[in-house]
């Protein structure tokens, strides 16, 4: 009777038995990399919007400050999406007949909200507050990237927990003086570590032990 398994099967099974640890480790690594990849987190993928709003044009081109539209970012946990009225402030006269902006005008006429697609969407089990970050010296750019170069807005970072913790463990890497909070392309005037540590002391930033406590973000 012919053998069902070839002789080489012996070697193969030995490798699988002793290599199981490495194979499992490799699979875990592949899974972790896929999980944090832009494909999964949808980072750097521009989102379709009902009106193709360009931050590159409004921020980079015209130089409008972030807070002209996102008015509550310094005082509230939520950086508001501006009401249609804010668009109409300028677009009552500029591009006032453009077909592209018809949904904006329709929204202003009828009072129905424009249904923007959310770009940065944290899981609901995470507590996040914009104002505390702004007031402690984390610039818009640090999380949202070069918004002034985004023709359509995308999420710049993974928003994974490891990304949050990376800064919560070392806040000094990302702190800047308040007057540059909305600056795009900010360059620290000197050594970032030194400036960051000084700002941590001035703004009473809690130490890493508190910032990385579970209940700081999951409350």
């Amino acid at each position: 009777m012919a053998q069902i398994f070839h002789r080489s099967t012996n070697t193969f099974s030995r490798i699988t038995i002793f290599g199981a640890v490495f194979i499992l480790a490799f699979l875990t690594w592949v899974f972790a990399e896929l999980d944090r990849s832009n494909y999964n987190t949808r980072a750097t993928v521009p989102r379709e919007q009902p009106v193709p709003f360009s931050h590159a044009h409004h921020v980079g081109g015209i130089g409008i400050d972030c807070r002209y539209c996102h008015t509550t970012v310094e005082t509230s946990g939520f950086a508001n999406i501006p009401p249609t009225k804010t668009c109409i402030n300028c677009h009552s006269q500029i591009w006032a007949t453009s077909p592209t902006l018809e949904p904006v005008r329709a929204s202003f006429r009828t009072g129905q909200s424009i249904r923007w697609t959310r770009v940065n969407d944290l899981p609901d089990f995470v507590y996040f507050n914009h104002s505390i970050h702004i007031n402690k010296g984390v610039g818009c750019e640090s999380c949202h990237g070069r918004v002034d170069r985004m023709p359509l807005t995308w999420q710049e970072n993974s928003l994974e927990m490891e990304w949050c913790l990376d800064c919560h463990r070392h806040p000094e890497k990302n702190l800047r003086p308040r007057e540059f909070i909305t600056t795009m392309g900010y360059q620290p005037a000197g050594d970032q570590e030194t400036i960051g540590r000084r700002l941590m002391a001035e703004n009473h930033v809690q130490d890493a032990r508190v910032l990385t406590s579970c209940s700081t973000c999951h409350r």
């Binding site: 508001n80 899981p123 609901d124 089990f125």
Partner: peptide, 13 residues
């Protein structure tokens, strides 16, 4: 279910 909880966060429809 934990990611998208049935609660209102600002501007959620």
């Amino acid at each position: 279910d934990m990611q998208d909880q049935p609660k209102y966060i600002p501007l959620r429809p």
